[in-house]
Design a protein around this nucleic acid. Sequence first.
DNA 1: CGAGTGATTGACTTAGATCAATGACCGTGG
DNA 2: CCACGGTCATTGATCTAAGTCAATCACTCG
Lengths: 200, 200
Amino acid sequence: MPAETWLPASVRAVAVKRKFKAGESLFRLGDSSEGFYRVTAGRVRMARIDRSGHEIILYAAGPGDTIAEASLYSPNYHCDAIASTDAEVLFYPKRSVLAAFAKDGKAAQSFTAMLARQVMDLRTRIEQRNIRSARERVRHFLALNASADGRTVELRGTVKDLAAQLGLTHEALYRTLAALARSGEIRRDGLRITLLRRRR
Amino acid sequence: MPAETWLPASVRAVAVKRKFKAGESLFRLGDSSEGFYRVTAGRVRMARIDRSGHEIILYAAGPGDTIAEASLYSPNYHCDAIASTDAEVLFYPKRSVLAAFAKDGKAAQSFTAMLARQVMDLRTRIEQRNIRSARERVRHFLALNASADGRTVELRGTVKDLAAQLGLTHEALYRTLAALARSGEIRRDGLRITLLRRRR
DNA sequence: CGAGTGATTGACTTAGATCAATGACCGTGG
DNA sequence: CCACGGTCATTGATCTAAGTCAATCACTCG
């Protein structure tokens, strides 16, 4: 969930703002890759069309998400990127980015470090999804996102967003949270959750 | 699912083989980071202990998986790595790896590229998990893993492995596969699945 | 002042998890 | 060569947690 800190300044400097209307494509499978993007508003989906003409979604990106980083090292895009809603993105031209990397080893390194951290993060997201029980899933999330003292979790974004991240319906999440509160395991004050004792 | 092609030769050259018995730790949270690992046999879990003493798993790695890549850019490890079974790993000393990167720009670049690809892959894995229906999930997988001609999928590993990857119980997967076959959507010959017509 | 969205809770249904059992294969140790 | 233990493949029966549908209330934004 990191943010602007991701991209080194020298790379951020070369960004170009672009806008797309819902349905427009940022690029298509096979297009020669011009660079990667960062979504600043709206939604962009990465997808491919299978043999029977059905679209299969590879990734649905929202504000803050970066897409097509791998295109930096590939001559063309490997899927379509289509604005699902009106969207605004920052475009990072491959040329300039690679030049920045070549010029500034630190920049390249911090880009790599960012990717490594992201891999970690994604892996634990998947690990989280391996937990079947909604309650345990929420516990996993809370334990992982507890502040330094391990007693509170500050939710960023809406509860619905969190539900999506956890792979639960928002109703299920509300209920689970309510149940945890009822059983005295947590206390909720809006977006701040306080962890109390733990079961067993 | 990539493999040996991941690591550039100059990096692979500095690997050291190590063995751990079930329960032993490769490193602990806070240890100064010496490098990253690649599991060649057995299972290694990355975990943290929460305030109530419960272990929370960040990632369960198996043969072929790489762990702690991010440690290359951090002075110490951010979680524990513990062998869940007797395990064999390749250890890539940070020093040597970074030296190899400095010496050989191509190596650094291909490491970065590998991470970028992995990020992509993990994202679509999560996207897959966002699909609730087992049947649709399997369809998503099949569509994504169809060979060039889009007609066949060759499973690597056991069906159970696939079930784990898809976040389904193996029973559920067997049933779903059987149902798809029954409805004429696919044909199964052991590990080879042939896609036939598509519904709707 | 509606319209649109988040937060929340209730009622109902079902897909998938669980528990179980069976047969086919190994590998291996005697 | 064979019996035994272990794992995968597969299918049946059952049960429940979580999804789905629905309604309410509180806000916020032009």
